[in-house]
Amino acid sequence: MTVSSLHLELPALPSELMALRREVRGFVAAERAAGGLPYPDKVGLGFSPEVSRRIAARGWIGMTWPRRYGGHERTALERYVVTEELLAAGVPVGAHWISDRQSGPVLLKFGTEAQKQALLPRIARGELAFCIGMSEPDSGSDLASLRTSGTRVDGGWRINGAKLWTTNAHRVDYMIALVRTARADEGNRQSGLTQILIKLDSPGVAIRPIRSMVGVQDFNEVVFQDVFVSDADVVGQPGHGWNQVSAELAYERSGPERWLSSFRLLAELVQAAGPRPSDASAMEIGRLFGQLMAVRQISLSIASMLQAGKTPNLEASIAKDIGTRLEQEIVRTVRNIVHADALFEGADLPALRALLASAQRYAPAFTIRGGTGEILRGVIARGLGLR
């Protein structure tokens, strides 16, 4: 069993997609050989604006967007292949990930023509980065309880409040924030919410770092104190923010990063185990890959639904719930195999050691980010008519 053999077992895709897959693998190999792409020693999405710009130069950001907005008018499945390969190889895509995955599509679907013309081409060139402005202090997973407010003033809005667990806010240019701009209707807590573009170097924006137990600063608290945004920065219609966020969450929850965050760790285990792993280890590794392929098929079907213009909230929640729990199981299983087979005894396996140490600290976050398992199961229950 070898790492390269993992690719051969993937379900067949149209020939043009396989050609694109080989192109991405060639790009990764060339970047590594040239020293421009370090080998990953942590799970999760690394952050490198330089790598993102080189990816953009290949036409792999904004792939499905119209050419008039800097896109390349390729299919959602082509985009899926590119992102799958980059994630499986541990390429640091964090500098463009949010912008390409959801902020750009939100602007494309709900933004004004001026917003699209000004922002989308720069995202596609890898020049602009975004973060998500949803979670708040004291709100937990109850997004409708948010308290950040947008008050009407001459020519725009005054924003006050705070967003929490905001990934990469200290490194990016913009946030699309969900704020309350009107009192909620009785019996409809989701009404009165609006999405607003906020430039993070604006006066009144303070970014406070939160260091995780992994030892890195990815998270932040972003505080707004009388931050002025113009009417031109409203995304979509005031008061329609909840429906827009619901569409955005389908992009966030369905992608391959929801089951590939710990893939590099599993690949390193396969390499360390060699062609003749123990029977017990081979059985466990096979079980994990069987589950990975099943989740992958769900994720691919959601990519097809997005390509057809649908909003697969239910399906995305299923994919995210299954995928992130599988990611945690991968970490536990790799740890158990490493100890049961004594792989570290007398072996020089720096990549596996580093990734396992990182993954064990990071794994609790898998089932929290993008919506907790409890929230997702509530979405699934409603989608099935059970509540």
Rank of each mutant, 00 (worst) to 15 (best):
L146R: 11
L146P: 03
R147W: 03
T148A: 15
T148N: 07
T148S: 15
S149F: 04
R152Q: 13
V153R: 03
D154N: 14
G155S: 06
G156F: 08
G156P: 02
W157F: 10
R158V: 12
G161F: 06
A162I: 15
K163T: 14
K163Q: 15
L164W: 03
T167G: 08
N168S: 01
N168R: 04
A169I: 03
R171G: 07
V172I: 13
D173N: 12
Y174A: 03
Y174G: 04
I176P: 15
I176H: 10
I176Q: 13
A177K: 10
A177W: 02
L178P: 15
V179Y: 12
V179P: 05
R180E: 03
A182D: 11
R183Y: 11
A184D: 11
N188F: 05
R189F: 07
R189K: 13
S191Y: 15
G192L: 13
G192D: 02
G192V: 08
L193W: 01
T194S: 05
Q195R: 12
I196D: 03
I198T: 04
L200R: 03
D201R: 10
S202V: 09
P203D: 07
V205N: 05
A206P: 05
R208K: 13
P209R: 12
P209E: 07
P209H: 04
I210F: 14
R211W: 08
R211P: 05
M213L: 14
M213G: 00
V214L: 11
V214Q: 03
G215L: 12
V216S: 13
V216P: 13
Q217W: 09
Q217S: 13
D218E: 11
F219A: 14
F219L: 09
N220G: 11
E221M: 06
Q225P: 12
D226Q: 11
V227L: 06
F228W: 02
V229I: 11
D231L: 07
D233T: 04
D233L: 13
D233V: 13
D233R: 06
D233C: 15
V234C: 01
G236E: 04
Q237V: 15
P238T: 14
N243Q: 13
N243T: 10
V245G: 09
V245M: 12
S246R: 07
A247V: 09
E248D: 09
E248L: 14
L249R: 04
A250P: 15
A250F: 13
Y251N: 09
E252D: 07
E252C: 15
E252N: 08
R253D: 09
S254C: 08
G255W: 01
P256W: 01
P256L: 02
R258H: 14
W259A: 01
W259R: 07
L260C: 10
L260N: 01
S261N: 03
F263P: 01
R264F: 03
L265D: 00
A267F: 05
E268Q: 08
E268N: 08
E268P: 12
V270H: 02
V270G: 08
A272P: 04
A273F: 08
A273N: 06
